[in-house]
Write a protein that binds this DNA or RNA. Structure first.
Lengths: 303, 303
DNA sequence: CTCATAAATGCTCATCACGAGCATATAGGT
DNA sequence: ACCTATATGCTCGTGATGAGCATTTATGAG
């Protein structure tokens, strides 16, 4: 019988110069990956081994993303099951005697996801026309309406929701507006900007971005991407880079403050341009101290 | 080379008579599961096939939970990778000519998770003493403090957080207070009440409960467990059964109302005992209409 | 030295969601 | 008629959040 191969794939993120970047191989066309082998004690350790071997880059925080069996990929007649992970680190200097890891800005693959300078022109100029055209080509009225609703929710009428990265990519895929999808169907208009990747790696990347954008809201994971000491503006710029949106400065500081996530180092940074900023460090203790966010159910008082 | 086997495991939930129940096999000792085979188009379809074959019960809503490689289970010298899913349905009548599916209340496996009638005595009487004893046996002061902190967070000082199902189970496992853990380590006091399962199935169940408890707060998934028409109290009792907590009635109604999740059917139910209650139905449209919850980041106004 | 500019920081205000609890309405049963 | 059990309506206080004004303190140009 043909066996099944397990492939481990990593989305490794760092934020440098206010740009979120991911670790890639093959000139940015692939994510680091490798197969799960008997020598690996756990899935996560297998992943760490592969990433460190391929990129010579240590991996910090890691969490599992999703598992799926890619219908189109086979391996000696068997199936490939893909287990994907999200990793957070900081960019290291190029290591001696190794292939320099290929860090690429993630908006290179998803240019429509960066709304820091307002709505990308790409959306109104190419994406929405392409999608509306696709909706018009629906087989019947019901499907037409459903397509229109999905477009409104992800790209159109509704206020921009930065978490819907995967839904947007899947929509563009279905509408055959990305090159990966055009291999099978010859329908659709011309492909829109945004670099493709091998296999389903761009889809995995979309999953990772979506997860990270959701997670920074309820768990203090941003700090995995920060240096030991930082100013509040640096922290804000990092979150903005990830979320792809501008944040309200004063409210951002208030939020950080009331959460008690950071403490002053006592030092200041004069390199900020204007008035010098206080430097802060992350209070690692809070991770252990606190659980998850509060409940959104109307819980009755314990009698 | 020894191959790798993929096992698909399902936590299938229904709520009957104000009790959350799960579909089990082998007298409640195992969750439905089977291996992923080449005949299965996707992982999810493989899972559906197995569950329906083993339990003669159709599966509705399904979502992936987690994937892991159980260190201790081998298969012809190879590894087993386990992919787990959460499924939601309603209990059907026993199908003709099949083995009756074994529905079991989930609090049978996690008696300490049901706080609907206040704190279970089990917690104060057995669990906390057992855990504190385990904390006392820590090798050094640092570990002792860490253990104490975990106990406080999950079972002790902090207000009860119903989402920490997995963390609590893992703590009890580490402290060898559950029978599954006692096979390896002979340390620990006596096991606490709560039925065990084969392999790591109780752990998978804990993951499923935790996921469902978290999800009902931000996605309208409860309705997958409801009949077509229901009263608001029935809905509340179902959520309470899942969350393991009592809810404030008036506020619960307000929440449901402001969310616009349901609409009146125009009929009333006089079977409630007191004043007859209006019957409602779920507005399926909202699933398509709305995306996820609002952001918790201080987003600046789009200029 | 003075002033424009760029940040950093401090505060205020309106709105809204949520926890709590009082009050009223309407069935069936005694 | 009265009691009990629900259903349903409404109010109040508090805290989180969105928005924006005002002040403080550096640097660099003139």
């Amino acid at each position: 019988m043909p066996g099944i191969a397990i492939e481990l794939t990593a989305v490794v993120v760092a934020v440098t110069a206010e740009e979120p970047r991911i670790l890639t191989l093959r000139s940015g066309k692939a994510l680091p990956s490798g197969s799960f082998e008997s020598g690996h004690r756990t899935l996560q350790m297998g992943l760490r081994a592969w990433v460190e071997k391929q990129t010579h880059h240590p991996l910090g925080y890691v969490e599992q993303l999703y598992t799926f069996a890619d219908r189109d990929r086979v391996h000696d007649g068997g199936r490939i099951v893909s287990i994907s992970y999200l990793g957070l680190t900081r960019e290291a200097e190029a290591p001696a005697g190794g292939t320099a890891p290929g860090w690429r800005g993630w908006y290179r693959y998803f240019p429509w996801e960066d709304w820091r300078d307002g709505p990308p022109k790409l959306v109104a100029r190419l994406i929405l026309p392409g999608l509306r055209d696709w909706a018009r080509r629906a087989p019947d009225a019901v499907a037409r309406k459903a397509r229109g609703q999905r477009i409104d929710l992800t790209f159109g009428a509704a206020p921009w929701n930065e978490e819907l990265v995967l839904q947007r990519y899947e929509l563009l895929f279905e509408a055959a507006l990305v090159p990966e999808a055009r291999r099978r169907r010859s329908t659709g208009g011309e492909a829109i900007p945004g670099e493709a990747m091998v296999h389903d790696h761009r889809r995995i990347l979309a999953t990772g971005i979506a997860r990270l954008r959701a997670k920074i809201k309820y768990r203090p994971v941003v700090f995995e991407l920060m240096p030991p000491a930082f100013t509040l503006l640096q922290l804000q710029r990092t979150v903005e880079a990830l979320a792809g949106q501008q944040l309200h400065k004063q409210n951002f500081r208030r939020l950080i403050d009331t959460q008690g996530l950071v403490e002053e180092t006592g030092q200041i940074s004069t390199e900020t341009g204007g008035r010098p900023a206080k430097l802060y460090r992350f209070r690692r203790e809070v991770v252990a101290e606190r659980a998850v966010a509060g409940s959104k159910l109307p819980i009755a008082r314990p009698i």
